[in-house]
Design a protein around this nucleic acid. Structure first.
Lengths: 190, 190
DNA sequence: GTCTATAGCTTGATAGAC
DNA sequence: GTCTATCAAGCTATAGAC
């Protein structure tokens, strides 16, 4: 029997796990082979451009998942504050309570201009979604945008601190702050 | 004439620039040779343990610089708020307004346990210094510690966002928030 | 679509001259 | 303390069978 085609979902999951953990340069083909169960030549068959193409495809896949699931509540019905909480829970799920790291962080050490450009667009999309939610909560466009950027900063920093300290708490705290950060105009008694 | 010994300062500066930019795995010996002007064998002469030993030495050097210069105002005389501002200016200088990245971020992708342990201690030292300053400002020990951790999270996140967005603003904003974050008990009108 | 096999190159690491 | 020269291992990448 011929070897079955590995499902795209398992493939992308395996690949992105490696890149997330090790970064672009740290991800070797032996790592990627182990994670997917495919040999090197099979990976090149799927991604003729090698790691650069994998990373591009992964970012696109994650972009879609962020847009269609994680950040979705930003453009749904309901109280802005509740929607922010919902996004927080989805972020906790996505980053496995801070045990998984952010590709935008780990991949931007590579100096591929296309990867850098892609990562920038991804983060801007993220900020835009937060800003929309923040405006829905009644904040002015300028303040909303500022808060949206600060919220992304808080989450990325939480992930870094959780990795360095080997402790999920900083990231979980960042998420807990999210609803206030995005929806309360005058922040008091944080 | 025999080749002159390169100064320790230039050596460490060159090495840490590379590790900061590329991370542990991304930093190849050819990169390190280019940055220092030394050939591979000379680097091994200075650091028989190779990259792992370089990284350890670099972290120790940066630790000292942080303790003796960047974070120094945390344990000096003066109004806590002014001291926080002073630390902010030194952080801006150290990270070149967000154009240089944090070793604790870029190095913890490597899975060397000793590096991970060292990085954790470095960040804890940083948090401790902030917490001391925050207590000096009259905040309770529990709140001070929370704020200190949040401040480090904000700075690390600012560095990540500035790198990804290719824009120093998020990092500079993180620094601008520092005095409030560390010294104001009830945060209002951020 | 997956595999085995192989190629060339770069890497990390060492030995020995000056 | 720095250099040239060299090595094996691991890396990226490709050709061709099933």
């Amino acid at each position: 029997m011929r070897p079955a085609k590995i499902s795209d979902e398992r493939l992308f999951q395996g690949l992105s796990d490696v890149f997330r953990r090790k970064g672009y340069d740290g991800a070797s083909y032996s790592d990627l082979m182990k994670a997917t169960g495919l040999v090197k030549a099979s990976l090149y068959h799927r991604f003729p451009g090698g790691k650069a193409e994998m990373v591009d495809a992964i970012l696109s896949t994650v972009d879609r998942h962020f847009a269609e699931y994680v950040l979705k509540p930003a453009s749904e019905e309901g109280r802005p504050r509740d929607r922010a909480g919902k996004i927080g829970r989805r972020l906790r799920e996505f980053y496995d309570s801070g045990r998984r790291w952010c590709l935008l962080d780990t991949l931007t050490l590579a100096d591929s201009p296309s990867t850098r450009a892609h990562a920038r667009r991804s983060m801007e999309f993220w900020i835009d979604a937060f800003a929309r939610l923040s405006r829905d909560a009644g904040l002015s466009p300028a303040i909303a945008r500022k808060r949206a950027q600060e919220a992304v900063v808080t989450i990325e920093g939480g992930l870094v601190a959780s990795r360095v300290l080997n402790n999920p708490r900083p990231f979980l705290r960042s998420l807990a702050n999210l609803p206030n950060q995005l929806t309360v105009d005058r922040l008091a008694a944080l």
